[in-house]
Computed example of a mutant assay.
Amino acid sequence: MSYAVGIDIGGTKTAIGLIDSSGVILAKTSLPTDLSIKPDEMVDRMAEAVKDLITAQGIQESDLLGIGVGAPGPLNSKTGYIVKPPNLPTWWDFPLVDSLRRHFELPISFENDATAAALAEKWLGAAQDAEHFVFITVSTGIGAGIYTHGKLLTGATGNAGDVGHFVIDASGDQCVCGQHGCWEYLASGTAIARQASALLGREVSSKEAFDLAAAGDVPMKDLIDGIFRYIGIGCVTLINTFDPEMLVIGGGVSQVGAPLFDAVKDYVSQYALNPSGRTTAIVPAALQQDAGLIGAAALVHMPY
């Protein structure tokens, strides 16, 4: 049996796991992503956690095939740099891979977190039988991993799939990226909470917004129906661009289930350009909580 370490870096926490070649998570832990310390110090903590994890499992570093790291973009997977992710402002232009190499003499694979999650869905999840699919995560933001012709499409620097910054409505308000009306600004979990809070004049979570809509609150239902339409618009754009056989939707917002998937399928069935695109399979992600960890390890275990 061979093993890999997966590291999934997020804005608030970093998950670390030991995953075998069949995709089983043998052990995992997490650390707060502490933005008050230097990134190198955070990497020191990550490395210590990795070593503690493998020691507890009776595994030597020499037993590992490598370390896979998924992180939010923009990044540069070729140089190993975290470039400019909005939720990691103190990590901008940070040589993450070189920093990890201070602690390990192992191959290190590094990709965008949504790209890694797409590979996880291909390995063990909803897209095992698909050779052309797009994984979409709709959560705090919106991102995608693109798998086509039997391999990941990562782009020149690893940032292919930053679809949250498709402009869906140019008359909309300004996104953090500077454009107006980005898909992420209009339809992410953050966007739902922001718009619902403005509607009700108090702090509202995206879950509460969905619950109110399901309970028959008419203004909230109108808001959520609009969100689903925006998600449908983005999905049609991806279908028209990549001609996938499947869209896999994950992330926190996908947990609303049938109301989202039914609305998106209906929109796609009307507006995808190619008649065959109108019947594109649109399915929920099979790997939710541990998708990032499994995806990071998949960067080591699977050719991509």
Rank of each mutant, 00 (worst) to 15 (best):
T115I: 08
A127G: 11
P72T: 05
L200Q: 15
A117R: 02
D113Q: 10
L106V: 09
E121C: 08
T157Q: 10
I136F: 10
H165A: 08
I108E: 08
A193G: 11
L106S: 02
Y185T: 09
I82E: 08
G145M: 11
Y81H: 12
K151N: 13
G161V: 02
P74T: 05
L96Q: 06
Y81T: 01
I168V: 15
T148A: 12
A130K: 13
I146T: 04
L186K: 02
G145D: 07
L75T: 00
T154C: 12
S171M: 11
T148M: 09
P89E: 06
E131W: 00
P72D: 09
P95C: 02
W92D: 01
Q128I: 06
S109I: 01
F133N: 13
A117L: 09
G143C: 10
V83M: 09
V97A: 09
Y185N: 14
G172N: 07
L124G: 01
G125T: 01
G150M: 07
E121G: 04
H180F: 12
F166L: 15
Q179P: 00
Q179E: 14
D169G: 05
L124H: 04
E203C: 03
C182V: 03
I108N: 07
T137A: 06
L153C: 09
L124E: 02
F135P: 08
C177E: 10
D173K: 09
A117M: 15
A130N: 07
T154A: 14
L100P: 03
Q174I: 13
P85D: 06
Q179D: 12
D162F: 03
N87A: 05
L88C: 08
T140C: 08
P107C: 02
A118F: 06
L106G: 02
H165P: 02
L124S: 06
S171I: 00
G73Q: 06
F135V: 03
C182F: 08
L100W: 05
N87P: 11
A156D: 06
S77E: 08
Y81N: 10
R194D: 14
F94Y: 10
N112G: 10
E131S: 13
S109L: 12
T140A: 12
S139E: 13
H180D: 05
D173G: 15
P95H: 06
N76K: 05
H180W: 03
V83D: 14
L106M: 08
L88D: 13
G189D: 08
A193N: 03
L96S: 10
V167P: 01
A191F: 02
H165E: 03
A187M: 00
L100N: 04
G172K: 00
I82H: 13
D129I: 00
F166M: 15
D173E: 14
A198V: 00
T115Y: 00
V134L: 06
E184Y: 03
D98P: 00
P107R: 03
G155N: 04
L199G: 12
Q174Y: 05
Y147R: 03
G158W: 07
A156K: 13
P85V: 08
F133C: 04
L152Y: 14
